[in-house]
Design a protein around this nucleic acid. Sequence first.
DNA 1: ATGGTCGCGTAGCGA
Length: 260
Amino acid sequence: MRIATWNVNSINARLETALAVIADLNADVICLQELKCEDHRFPREAFEDLGFNVATHGQKTYNGVAILSKHPIEEASPRLPGDPDDDQARYLEAVITRDGGAVRVASMYMPNGNPVESPKFPYKLAWMERLIGHARGLLALEEPVVLAGDYNVIPRPEDCHDPRAWAGDALFRPESRAAHRALLNLGYTDAFDALDGRSGQYTFWDYQAGAWPKDHGIRIDHIACSPQAADRLKAIEIARAARGREKPSDHVPVVATFDL
DNA sequence: ATGGTCGCGTAGCGA
């Protein structure tokens, strides 16, 4: 089973590009982020025509996450537990079933957190703490669990072109990196760490200042696997070519392959 | 060169 994550940066502005990118991915499950539309404006039929089941959790203008799956989607559950007042559409969890097994998949769009002197940074850290609490509970199920998404965290200095340029940014602050490590330290395996780990393998390049042609990117889209998923993890790929297309998202897909 | 680019929605915010 191939499970992908991709921050699409508006599904409606990107539909033609998205259909081409997704055709190339050959994925069974695709977690999308930054839909930037309410559920009734998601182009569901375009993906159903490609053979995907569709679950969405959108909102007007900002955020929004979806799960596309060639296998049945069960127990689709929007919202990260732990704060009933959080109305930002950043989390959708579902169980993907196929003969003889199931995998629980979350599509996540973690808060950016900038500027760090604003309430956005504590919101980011609180969101990550809620995720850690929820992810701890999921481990008790002893199931294959895959937490995929735009984490808005640069894990290591080697995951950005110029660490000095990112010093102090919410994506690279010690608190953000520590929260990401704490999630993994619960017992989750980061798919890229486990199978690749190279420097300079980016998943995001800003639209500004020639970041893509200069390869001034950052690696912020990640896939965390429970032990039962990590046991079956076989490959990790970053679909870098997507950034060179017409009308690209600023992120590219990441795909993990499992013996599931 | 003290900006630069997108998307949403139609000004200015978010990234």
